[in-house]
Amino acid sequence: MTWNVCAGTNPYCSLYRRSAQDLAWNIGRYALTGPIKPDVIFLQEFCTGAAGALELWLEKQTGRMWTIQSWGLTSNDGTPYACHPDYQGGSRGSQSVTVAVADHAATFQTYPLTSPPWYVKRSALCATISAKRVKVCGTHLSAGLPNDDRQPGAPYRKQQIRELMAAAAKPGYRTVFGGDLNVAPPDSDYGSAAGRRAIVPAYKAYDECDQRGGRRTGRWTHTSTREDGNVTKKLDYLFAPKGSVRQCHVEQRTSTSDHMPLYVKVAL
């Protein structure tokens, strides 16, 4: 499962400034109620201060052992990119990329991604699960905004996706990677052409959870509100080895975040 929970700095999302316990409950219920019960969870715009609460909640409610690792984003000057405090003024840590693994021991590693020097640094957080011979990597890529990807050709997201794929690959292991990649699918009719081109190598090497046969697109996972109405896009992805995707689900009933949870079932 991957989900950008929009908890850190966006006041228009309902998890903004919510407590660690609230974050744990809202995230955990999607791990329990979806048609696919995840063994691995990727989170973006999660707060590092809530990792312990989420781990305890998942263990109590699922009866499984969970291991959670977070990587906190940093600003361009190296300082933590902090989540805004909760409603009582308490610190919630840094906005993060987080990976949760159930049952099996996992080795975590962070891979820095080439990032614009004028905005937050990006990384992929990977977990190697030796018992299953699986390597999983979650990330949150640059947004492609004028102050984040200003050169022609979306150079930062293009580089980041290539670096993410290199980090996720491990000989003899199955690879699953994804998260909020901040690009539109190649065959969609929205988003920048540069962004759509940036994601093409991933589709060539892997199957994406929700792609429609030969058409490289899928259901929307993100909604934004504008004066002329809501705009929906697919920005969230889960890639797995060719031929291994058995089921895909997009939970489009949530109003908790501006992103929807995305689930994939992969044959091992």
Score class of each variant (00 low, 15 high):
Gln69Tyr: 09
Ile27Leu: 12
Lys158Met: 04
Pro38Asp: 06
Gly138Met: 07
Cys13Leu: 01
Gln252Phe: 03
Lys242Trp: 07
Thr110Ser: 07
Pro241Gly: 04
Ser188Val: 09
Ala193Tyr: 08
Ser115Ala: 10
Glu163Ala: 11
Gln69Asp: 03
Gln252Ile: 03
Cys209Glu: 00
Lys37Phe: 02
Leu43Gly: 02
Asp148His: 12
Thr232Glu: 04
Gly172Pro: 05
Tyr119His: 15
Cys137Lys: 04
Ser192Val: 06
Trp220Ser: 04
Ile41Phe: 03
Leu125Trp: 01
Ala267Arg: 14
Phe177Cys: 09
Ser188Lys: 05
Pro11Ser: 13
Pro171Ser: 12
Ser115Gly: 06
Ser188Gln: 06
Arg196Gly: 07
Arg29Asp: 01
Gly90Val: 05
Met65His: 15
Gly78Glu: 06
Lys234His: 10
Arg174Ser: 12
Ser255Pro: 03
Gly28Met: 05
Cys13Asp: 11
Pro152Ala: 12
Val134Tyr: 01
Phe177Asn: 06
Met1Leu: 11
Val264Cys: 06
Val264Phe: 04
Ala184Met: 07
Ile129Met: 13
Tyr30Arg: 15
Gly28Thr: 11
Arg226Leu: 09
Tyr87Asp: 05
Asn147Leu: 12
Gln160Asn: 11
Thr175Val: 14
Thr33His: 15
Glu208Leu: 00
Gly243Met: 13
Asn10Lys: 14
Ser70Thr: 15
Leu43Tyr: 09
Leu125Ser: 02
Gln61Lys: 14
Gly195Arg: 07
Asn76Arg: 15
Gly34Leu: 09
Ala20Thr: 03
Ala102His: 07
Asp22Val: 15
Asp86Ile: 08
Pro38Cys: 10
Leu262Thr: 14
Ser91His: 10
Asp258His: 12
Ser257Tyr: 08
Gly243Phe: 14
Ser255Val: 14
Ser14Trp: 08
Tyr206Asp: 00
Arg18Cys: 09
Leu262Phe: 11
Tyr12Lys: 12
Glu45Lys: 07
His84Asp: 13
Ala127Phe: 03
Ile41Ala: 04
Gly213Leu: 13
Gly172Phe: 05
Thr217Glu: 04
Ala198Lys: 00
Thr48Val: 01
Ser96Tyr: 00
Gly8Ser: 09
Ile27Arg: 08
Leu262Trp: 02
Lys242Arg: 15
Tyr237Gln: 13
Ala202Ile: 10
Gly93Val: 14
Gly8Ile: 00
Ala184Cys: 15
Ser142Met: 02
Ser91Glu: 10
Ala20Glu: 07
Arg197Tyr: 05
Ala167His: 01
Lys242Ser: 14
Val97Gly: 01
Asn26Met: 08
Pro185Glu: 07
Thr223Trp: 11
Pro112Tyr: 01
Phe42Glu: 01
Arg215Cys: 05
Val136Gly: 06
Ala167Gly: 05
Gly144Pro: 06
Pro155Tyr: 02
Lys233Thr: 08
Val136Pro: 04
Pro116Ser: 10
Leu58Phe: 09
Ala24Arg: 02
Gln159Cys: 01
Ile41Leu: 07
Tyr190Phe: 15
Leu125Tyr: 03
Lys121Arg: 15
Lys265Ala: 10
Thr74Pro: 02
Tyr237Ile: 11
